[in-house]
Simulated assay, not measured.
Amino acid sequence: MAKIQYNLTRGSDVIRDGMYLELSEAGTSPFRQIAEVFYSDVTHEFSFSCYEGCIPLKEIEKLIHEAKKLLPPTKQEP
């Protein structure tokens, strides 16, 4: 049995007014999104959505860890 490979993809969502980091299964057609962390520019909060059952905890931990680093805006010092 082949081991499932996963991808992380970061993007901007103008409709929801924020950014996301999504976990997907690599090499699937059609695209298979597994889970997502969303950062709202309106509320300045993170939310987590899961679209599949039985996801390896390691992959969820990686998704959350990377989202905390990559999603919130950084402030530029003058």
Score class of each variant (00 low, 15 high):
residue 2 A to I: 10
residue 3 K to A: 04
residue 4 I to R: 07
residue 5 Q to H: 15
residue 5 Q to D: 15
residue 6 Y to G: 07
residue 6 Y to H: 08
residue 7 N to S: 14
residue 7 N to V: 07
residue 8 L to F: 12
residue 8 L to C: 12
residue 8 L to E: 10
residue 11 G to T: 06
residue 12 S to Q: 14
residue 13 D to A: 03
residue 13 D to C: 06
residue 14 V to H: 13
residue 14 V to W: 13
residue 14 V to T: 14
residue 15 I to W: 15
residue 15 I to T: 14
residue 16 R to G: 02
residue 16 R to Y: 01
residue 20 Y to H: 01
residue 21 L to K: 01
residue 22 E to Y: 08
residue 23 L to V: 02
residue 23 L to I: 00
residue 24 S to P: 04
residue 24 S to Q: 09
residue 25 E to G: 04
residue 25 E to W: 05
residue 26 A to W: 11
residue 26 A to E: 11
residue 27 G to A: 07
residue 27 G to R: 02
residue 28 T to Y: 06
residue 28 T to G: 05
residue 29 S to P: 07
residue 29 S to L: 09
residue 29 S to F: 08
residue 30 P to T: 04
residue 30 P to Q: 07
residue 31 F to T: 11
residue 32 R to I: 08
residue 33 Q to V: 06
residue 34 I to H: 00
residue 35 A to Q: 02
residue 35 A to V: 03
residue 35 A to P: 03
residue 36 E to R: 11
residue 36 E to P: 07
residue 36 E to V: 09
residue 37 V to L: 04
residue 37 V to D: 00
residue 38 F to Y: 04
residue 38 F to S: 03
residue 39 Y to K: 00
residue 40 S to D: 04
residue 41 D to L: 08
residue 41 D to R: 03
residue 42 V to Y: 05
residue 42 V to A: 09
residue 42 V to H: 08
residue 43 T to Y: 00
residue 44 H to E: 14
residue 44 H to V: 11
residue 44 H to S: 15
residue 45 E to C: 15
residue 45 E to K: 15
residue 47 S to Y: 11
residue 47 S to K: 11
residue 48 F to R: 12
residue 49 S to I: 06
residue 50 C to W: 05
residue 50 C to K: 10
residue 50 C to S: 06
residue 51 Y to V: 06
residue 51 Y to Q: 05
residue 51 Y to I: 05
residue 51 Y to K: 05
residue 55 I to T: 06
residue 55 I to Y: 08
residue 56 P to A: 02
residue 57 L to F: 11
residue 57 L to C: 11
residue 58 K to C: 07
residue 58 K to E: 06
residue 58 K to F: 03
residue 59 E to T: 09
residue 59 E to D: 14
residue 59 E to H: 10
residue 62 K to F: 01
residue 62 K to W: 01
residue 62 K to Y: 03
residue 63 L to A: 02
residue 63 L to N: 00
residue 63 L to H: 00
residue 63 L to Y: 00
residue 64 I to A: 05
residue 65 H to P: 06
residue 65 H to G: 08
residue 66 E to I: 10
residue 66 E to D: 09
residue 66 E to T: 09
residue 67 A to H: 00
residue 67 A to G: 01
residue 68 K to Q: 10
residue 71 L to M: 07
residue 71 L to V: 05
residue 71 L to F: 04
residue 72 P to K: 02
residue 72 P to A: 06
residue 73 P to N: 08
residue 74 T to L: 13
residue 75 K to Q: 11
residue 76 Q to M: 12
residue 76 Q to D: 07
residue 76 Q to V: 13
residue 77 E to R: 10
residue 77 E to L: 09
residue 77 E to Y: 09
residue 78 P to L: 15
residue 78 P to T: 12
